[in-house]
Design a binder for these strands. Structure first.
Lengths: 285, 285
DNA sequence: CAATCTTTGTGCACACGTTCACAAACGCAT
DNA sequence: ATGCGTTTGTGAACGTGTGCACAAAGATTG
């Protein structure tokens, strides 16, 4: 998911995209490349081709080359990219060569888990403080850090120069916490609460929402079930046609036929719901 | 973030987008609308205009109307949309009117947190089982459910007709777990491990990665710091020009000037790193 | 029933993102 | 030094997503 950057105030007319205007889609992929490159670096691989790296990162090689072209020309034709150099360039571009203190607000199950998360400490991110409003939680510790009270938020943000905040509170408290973070000087927020946050210009918000991800998966799952149901209806006729032709012809049976369990489950599901329920069950008043 | 749907096999030439082809971007927003609508429904609001709903969901109203137009024409001109009816239509479109059993594999801190997550149980999603490979974890319980051993995976997926799996294992185990899930019949995977998963056609993967989100925020944070540094350099001249003109004219001081803490922190940060480090520090061999 | 007001649904233009395909550039062997 | 194989960097075509602006459609009022 990506929350678009906040309409970029003071955007003096740049020549379309050159100079420093790295496309948002590219920025979102740089961490992916960086991870793959770091793995290569640990195996002491000196250079890598766009094809190999693209495969490792799960993207198209042309896309990867274009992405890198926005950073400058760091490859060598006929050879590929220097792994170490690319790691450095991407790290620098992403701002990972500096220290990023982060506060986590809301130390419930999720906040606790994030505090312990390994991927946090790496890449220049450092948990500066854990905060919670609940007196029962304040004073306990998580991941070796004490949970401090919300009232200390402003002081911590100022003292530690925190510019990134992570919200893992219940949805009801999220906007309030967000406002306090912003007022204290935080300009980037990662929101795990299922709430739409409103922030002033110049503050970035990205959201992570388990429920939304599952709903998107469910949509595609339902669509797949519907399609297989259609294919199942069309299959007998096709099979019959195939049987009537010579044995040298390609089998016309749908590819899904070799996955009995999956297909069976989906068909049962498609039968259970209306599959193709184009008729509205209730009309509005 | 969005993992594109797997190139949609059997895509008989549809007239561009009509019939059932809801754009991916629209699908990703439907859960957002649904949440806002559910809140309105609980407050017994009968109808809502695109403007109001768009504001609640944090999107443009024209976009929202276009999104709804893909589902059909469920609004009434001059009035707006019937809240209850829209809730039903979106739920049906997303497949939330049916039951979606889900398995969570990897019951560490994060898996534990997700099992307890409230947004899980709602909207038709049900945790069918918690799985882990570690004998020390198997047998314990989380969120009232027993943690079962990985070896039971295949039986559970078949018995409970699970089609969605959530991976919260360490990165090293993710691909292996993914393969087993797919082999067992799971066709949608939500991956929390920082790994690129490869799956056969017809299987959807979506990923959630804290580290990537933070890196994207860091990039924009760095960019903002650089811009403010530029403005700070240009500001004195502008301020001088403003002072020389009459008191009735608008102040030319940049908007950031009323946020001392934020600006100060960023400038310190910009000074610490190269801000505009266009000169490469090391050249490749 | 006509005039007016509100709000939807969508045509259109534009911005953004993706992919193909190929010339230019480089290493290496002969 | 020349030629050959490899791989980058990017122009161009295409597809997707966004937002404006407005006609059409319904509600409402007199």
């Amino acid at each position: 998911m990506a929350t678009g950057r906040p309409t970029h105030t003071a955007d003096r007319g740049r020549p379309a995209n050159r100079g420093r205007g790295i496309p948002e889609a590219t920025v979102a992929r740089l961490p992916l490349y960086l991870r793959a490159l770091t793995a290569l670096s640990e195996r002491s691989v000196p250079t890598v081709s766009s094809e190999e790296l693209a495969s490792a990162a799960g993207v198209n090689s042309a896309k990867l080359r274009k992405d890198f072209s926005y950073l400058g020309s760091y490859g060598t034709r006929g050879v590929g990219y220097d792994v170490e150099y690319l790691v450095y360039q991407i790290s620098r571009e992403l701002g990972l060569t500096q220290d990023w203190p982060v506060v986590i607000v809301g130390i419930g199950n999720l906040g606790h888990a994030l505090a312990n998360y390994g991927g946090f400490a790496s890449r220049g991110f450092r948990v500066a403080a854990l905060l919670d409003a609940d007196p029962a939680v304040v004073g306990t510790s998580a991941a070796g850090l004490p949970v401090r009270h919300m009232d200390e938020l402003e002081d911590i943000v100022e003292d530690e120069q925190v510019s990134i905040g992570v919200i893992t509170t219940p949805p009801g408290a999220a906007q309030q916490v967000c406002d306090r973070l912003v007022a204290a000087g935080v300009t980037s927020i990662l929101n795990f609460a299922p709430t739409v946050l409103s922030v002033p210009d110049g503050v970035d918000v990205r959201k992570v929402d388990l429920s939304i991800e599952l709903q998107i998966l469910a949509f595609h799952e339902q669509r797949k079930a519907g399609e297989e149901a259609e294919q199942a209806l069309a299959a007998p006729a096709a099979a019959k046609a195939a049987a009537s032709s010579g044995p040298s012809s390609e089998p016309v049976v749908p590819a899904a036929a070799d996955r009995p369990a999956r297909t069976a489950a989906k068909l049962r599901r498609a039968a259970a719901s209306g599959t193709d329920g184009d008729l509205p069950a209730v009309m509005p008043a």
